[in-house]
């Protein structure tokens, strides 16, 4: 026969003091607020998007038209969805190497003073309002960028990517991508630098004692260690690129047709820019709802990108541990 001692009630019934209680509730409330806002946005967009999608059918996502005055009015945002992705990819291709090099320089190569100044500059760059970047790009970046694109077309025109038949090099996805890249660089750089700074010194020591060069140390030690965090930083930047409105509005010529790959041909798409450029001149409430539905799909797209990023980060983290 075993003697059982009664189980104790741990911590229950213990009264937290009033200060703690108020603090706990405030924090819990704040935490839930973010969830409620997120849910609110989803429900609002979903409710507006539902009827539009029902009326327009799947062609809303696969067609390329904008006919608010037709009978019935017809809309298709395929060009915009694809355009948003294309811009993001261009921005990614330009900004990731630049950010990586900049972060490596700041963390491993620059003298401490220079590194500090650079860190502050990069943070400052992240704080520039996008409308300023857009205006700057419109007046300062676009003229020389036209010449770069002409050169690209002249020497690499045999690559389909750099074809241009119209001779018009303004308002191209390339310029839009460059502007987005400028906005991504500070985000990606600052996160990458933060991650690289955490490379354990004992691993760097080990690599040094094995006769590493800067390049091999980065390739085999620092980058594998920081992979998850760096991917996370890139995805955060990508989220900004997908959703950016105003800066792109200044430099991209919005066309509804899909511009599949001719990145230096005038005209491209972007959901966010579509919304901001059409919102002021809508023909009735239905078109507003169509814009909101477009927003819904932009929201979905960023959600998917973030989910993929989380998956990648989780996977690399698992491999490490």
């Amino acid at each position: 026969m075993s003697i059982e001692t009664p189980m104790r009630d741990l911590g229950k019934g213990k009264k937290a003091n009033a200060g703690d209680r108020i603090f706990n509730r405030t924090i819990t409330g704040a935490a839930f607020t973010s969830l409620i806002i997120l849910a609110g946005i989803t429900v609002f967009l979903g409710a507006k998007a539902g009827p539009v999608l029902q009326e327009q059918g799947l062609s809303f996502l696969t067609e390329t038209m904008w006919d608010p005055l037709g009978v019935p009015p017809e809309f298709g945002i395929a060009g915009m969805l694809y355009g948003s992705l294309l811009l993001a990819v261009i921005a990614l291709v330009i900004s990731v190497p630049v950010s990586l090099f900049l972060a490596v320089f700041m963390v491993f190569m620059a003298p401490p003073k220079v590194s500090k100044i650079l860190t502050n500059l990069v943070d400052l760059m992240a704080a520039i309002p996008s409308v300023i970047i857009g205006l700057w790009a419109f007046y300062v970046l676009v003229p020389p960028a036209q010449e770069w694109q002409q050169l690209l077309n002249q020497y690499l025109g045999w690559i389909p990517l750099f074809q241009n038949e119209s001779g018009n090099f303004t308002g191209t996805p390339f310029i839009g991508g460059v502007v987005l890249a400028i906005m991504m660089v500070p985000i990606v750089t600052s996160i990458t630098a933060e991650v690289l700074k955490r490379t354990p010194p004992e691993l760097v020591n080990a690599a040094e004692s094995l006769g590493c060069s800067m390049f091999t140390m980065l390739r085999y030690v620092a980058l594998p260690f920081g992979r998850g965090g760096i991917v996370g930083g890139v995805m955060l930047g990508l989220g900004r690129a997908l959703g950016e409105t105003i800066a792109v509005f200044f430099v991209l010529k919005l066309v509804f047709d899909i511009n599949f790959y001719k990145i230096i041909e005038s005209g491209g798409g972007s959901i966010a820019t579509l919304i901001v450029s059409k919102f002021g001149e809508t023909n009735g409430e239905y078109e507003v709802n169509v814009l909101l539905a477009s927003g819904f799909f932009l929201f979905l797209m960023t959600l998917v990108v973030n989910a993929i990023a989380n998956l990648i980060v989780a996977r690399t983290d698992r491999l490490k541990s």
């Binding site: 020591n205 004692s209 085999y220 260690f225 490490k320």
Partner: peptide
């Protein structure tokens, strides 16, 4: 070194 430091990746 003092602390074992194999490369974790």
């Amino acid at each position: 070194f003092q602390k074992p430091n194999p490369f974790p990746s």
